[in-house]
Design a protein around this nucleic acid. Sequence first.
DNA 1: GAATAAAAACCGTCCAGTCGGTTTTTATGT
DNA 2: ACATAAAAACCGACTGGACGGTTTTTATTC
Lengths: 191, 191
Amino acid sequence: MENAVRSERTRQAAIQAALAIIARDGPGRLTLDAIARESGISKGGLMHQFRTKQAVLKALLEHQIEHFEKFSQDYLASTDPRQPEAHLSAQIETLREAVSEPHSVAFAIVAALAEEPDLLSIIRDIDVQKIANIKAEAADPELAMLRWAAARGLVLSSVFGLCPFSAEERERLFARLLDARQWDAFAKANR
Amino acid sequence: MENAVRSERTRQAAIQAALAIIARDGPGRLTLDAIARESGISKGGLMHQFRTKQAVLKALLEHQIEHFEKFSQDYLASTDPRQPEAHLSAQIETLREAVSEPHSVAFAIVAALAEEPDLLSIIRDIDVQKIANIKAEAADPELAMLRWAAARGLVLSSVFGLCPFSAEERERLFARLLDARQWDAFAKANR
DNA sequence: GAATAAAAACCGTCCAGTCGGTTTTTATGT
DNA sequence: ACATAAAAACCGACTGGACGGTTTTTATTC
């Protein structure tokens, strides 16, 4: 097999193994040895592809970011471009997706990142951009940011097992956050 | 000195030391040895008061809960009891306080608790109760929960260094969340 | 045959928790 | 009141396992 392909395969295997470990055993159990064991790669092979654990976590994070970025793009593409506040809706939909995926897949990563807080700045930088988009298109920017913050709150709460709502209740709340007409009326009335 | 006092002093010293370590060095550096060193207690003495690290974290968590519970009670006491949605306002005010206190005091604890996720259920159980209160008094319960979720989102984002807003912007958002009149009008219009 | 990838054994550090012992407080008997 | 025994608090060296990372060796690709 070609070297580039070989490397890529190994890296992907490592990432998938890491996701499995986090989902099954929690972020605290995500060790290099565990990844090696889970993926079938030897520790040496793993360390060859990722020089440090931080590098593994970074790859993991980028993998997830890519996943949700794609989701968000797809949503935007499938939506009427004249829809008001499309970026906001896309972000809220993406957050909703993040919270409802299989079983603590993507987000437990965030928990894993408690070990490497620096990596979270990657997410923040992306969010800054998203927020700028949302602001630019919003009739009432503050309200838009609050809707975004509420969605974020629901996601982060759920990720850390802090969410006091049931799954159905959370779903209803997301639905309401997405009810553009209602908020639009509010924004206009409040101008 | 009396035994009970002696124990209590030691336990408090440990908790204060733990807070100092988290604020200064981050949750990753919170070890039993570090707490012993910082507090002047010996390792043995520390272990006598807390049989496991989890016990330390639990005490730390309860200490912080008590702190914010008091803040919330004080707010409720100082407010006109006829004010609509007083519990919601109290919770949002408390969350605002949590995010603006000295320097990552209380919440970095949440980060520390990434090690012991079970402890977070204590917070969740309290939140469930708070949410029940908020719901009971709300003209529009869903809207009330969304306001709560937004405040939570701002706090958790900040705690984990994920917040894409500046401090002033965050402050404005909190102020708006607390503008009861505006939301009340919205709730009524939306009924 | 040079370079890259993978395997396997190994190393040093960190850290929660243990253990044997000392000091201080509290209970008891006289 | 005083002596003495028991209990509680405290001390700090030590242990054992986990874990991130390194080194050495072997296999595969170019």
